[in-house]
């Protein structure tokens, strides 16, 4: 009978000689490599250009060094700041605030997102309020939280939670809702109930959108903590930036901003790496 071969392996006819294919592959690979190299050079070139303009404008005396420190001043300031006694205790305070804010914001966003997506009663009860709360900028709460929770860590954590909660909540909800109705139909036809549909279909299907939420959640948790420390704090990176700015130590401010950016970026990369592990099927 007609047994079709499933093989989709491509077998070239003898007319297409082996060398032709090899030559083609080789040229294609070289072209790719060249493109990657050119792109890297362009990025590096632009970075060097900006540094040069910055250095020229500051060292050349076109901009006052108190307003914008030169790249060299900033470099020395980084060493000065990082070796200072106050550096580690302050960064430890901020680090704790960010991690707690991120963790609580993420967990509550996922829990409420799942609750609203999976249970009609939960959706009917709290969804309208969550949508309403989502509209105003959460930063307005910062002064109130400092009044409520004090100058120490809890107020910063609270701001970070409020800021990072919403993207996680909305992305969880969107992810769980963005499902192929045919897949739902298939699960129903297999007599799968709510829990099994969630476990085998809805949750894995939501993970790509949820991971995008995690990344947003992270950057907003950092933002929330720093803003909180600006508004009122007795320790932390935000507090240091505020104090140094007040003392016109702009080089120190620059140094702290760079350290904070590097830290945020490293964790962001870590999350992206985790993402590529968790939703491996998107890379196939």
């Amino acid at each position: 009978m007609n047994m079709m071969q499933p093989a989709e392996e491509i077998v070239a006819s003898p007319a297409t000689q082996k060398e032709t294919i090899e030559r083609f592959v080789e040229t294609e690979r070289r072209r790719q490599k060249k493109k990657v190299l050119v792109n890297r050079l362009l990025a590096a070139g632009f970075g060097i250009f900006v540094l040069l303009v910055w250095g020229f404008a500051t060292e050349g005396g076109f901009v006052h060094r108190l307003i914008i420190p030169s790249p060299i001043d900033t470099f020395w300031a980084m060493g000065r700041v990082m070796s200072a006694d106050y550096f580690l205790p302050n960064i430890w305070v901020t680090l704790q605030e960010i991690l707690w804010g991120f963790a609580i914001g993420l967990a509550s966003g996922v829990v409420l997102g799942v609750g609203v997506a999976m249970f009609d009663a939960v959706r009917a009860t709290i969804y309208p309020y969550l949508v309403a709360l989502q509209a105003p900028p959460k930063i307005v709460l910062a002064p109130i939280f400092v009044t409520w929770f004090g100058f120490d860590q809890p107020s910063k954590i609270a701001i970070a939670v409020v800021m990072s909660f919403f993207p996680m909540f909305l992305n969880t909800l969107t992810g769980l809702s963005a499902v192929d109705q045919n897949a739902v139909k298939l699960m129903r036809s297999l007599t799968a109930g709510r829990w099994k549909t969630f476990r085998y279909l809805l949750l894995p299907n939501a993970l790509p959108i949820m991971m995008a939420g995690v990344k947003l959640c992270w950057t907003l948790a950092v933002l929330g903590v720093i803003v909180g420390e600006f508004v009122g704090a007795s320790a932390g990176i935000g507090y240091l930036i505020y104090a140094m700015n007040f003392q016109l130590d702009i080089a120190g401010v620059f140094a702290l901003i760079i350290i904070l950016s590097l830290f945020t970026l490293v964790v962001y990369q870590l999350i992206e790496w985790l993402e590529s592990r968790i939703i491996f099927w998107k890379q196939l």
């Binding site: 139909k185 298939l186 007599t191 939703i279």
Partner: peptide, 18 residues
Amino acid sequence: SPRPDLGMMLQTSVLFPW
């Protein structure tokens, strides 16, 4: 209601990519 002695196949394959 759905029963395990029935099987359903749809126009799209509805395979789970993960």
